[in-house]
Design a protein around this nucleic acid. Structure first.
Lengths: 187, 187
DNA sequence: ACCTGAACACCGTTCAAGT
DNA sequence: ACCTGAACACCGTTCAAGT
């Protein structure tokens, strides 16, 4: 049994946005990939904003589930952080793509409000997870400081992805992450 | 005497790209702002890629000149780094804009080759400056490690800008930069 | 319930034509 | 040297019409 049209649209759209961003997403191109007409895409997602919001929402849900499982699977701090950064590495491995919400953040001013809400939620989900993991490691640190460090870790990883994708190989990403780790940014 | 048309086009285009990115730049909108027709914009810049490449080239030249002057103006490492990060803060202060090459990096896969070249050059100019400044502070560090740290600093700052622009105030940027500094990322 | 063709106002780009 | 109108193939969106 083949996946339904709505799912096919979302899969194709997600790949495009992770590679080229929101503005580069075309309903006509998308329709061609899925084998329907662009007007039919609008039946499933009335506007481009609706589609992007659905993508970001799904993406954030998946990330939240994975991160929760990761926290349960091991207590080892270095292992947790290594797996966390590996998630962002995987996007680059997959045809030089970026974190969906990272690339959407770059277009923040162009995004319809519902998409912004989901991008904000992705950041919140990541920050919350990092706060818990970092606080466990550094129990003496003030809540404010942990919060700042968590946001800094996410920002640094997104930045590493941004800079690394313009390069030939994944080594740039690995080197940058190693530099963060060496500096002690990951707690 | 008023600035010439070419300069006016570049000024308007730069503001738009720093706020909305390459894909959101419209020759017709641009023409309206400058008071000419879109076909006339093509007279000055044959393609959108030509315009973006000119913008990025100018931007990188200005950055290179500023950074060179900064290195001459003070030997104090903390002062140098504070002024360096302040440059990226200023973009956010200016109507929530981003570093021109940072936002272009997010659209890297969509960029015409000549634009990519200029984005790469911006990264190279920044990395070179950071390598010199960081090496002066940490003379015992291996060249490879300094190179990685320099790229990490740039990536981290670009990431901070990316994350911070979705928030209400500049405090997020400042907090992230403070967290980098506290971790020792800036040497 | 799902899809379509046709229309609308947009877009970058080209080009012959104007001054 | 600099600008323009008109054309081309694109775009998101809407809507009446089909099954």
């Amino acid at each position: 049994m083949s996946t339904d049209t709505r799912t096919e649209i979302m899969l194709a759209a997600r790949a495009t946005v992770q590679a080229h961003g929101y503005n580069a997403l075309s309903f006509r191109e998308l329709a061609k990939e899925v084998g329907i007409k662009s007007a039919s895409v609008h039946y499933h997602f009335p506007t481009k904003g609706d589609l992007a919001a659905a993508l970001a929402s799904q993406y954030t849900d998946e990330a939240a589930a994975f991160f929760d499982a990761l926290r349960e699977s091991t207590q080892d701090h270095a292992q947790r952080m290594a797996t966390y950064t590996a998630v962002f590495r995987r996007a680059l491995e997959n045809n030089n793509r970026m974190c969906l919400c990272g690339i959407l953040a770059a277009e923040y001013d162009d995004l319809p409000a519902p998409v912004r809400v989901e991008v904000d939620r992705f950041i919140a989900v990541n920050t919350r997870w990092l706060v818990e993991v970092l606080a466990e490691r550094q129990p003496r640190l003030k809540a404010k400081a942990v919060e700042a460090q968590a946001l800094a870790v996410l920002a640094a990883i997104e930045g590493a992805q941004l800079i690394a994708r313009g390069r030939e190989d994944l080594k740039a990403f690995d080197q940058i992450i190693a530099a963060y780790s060496a500096a002690g940014l990951f707690g």
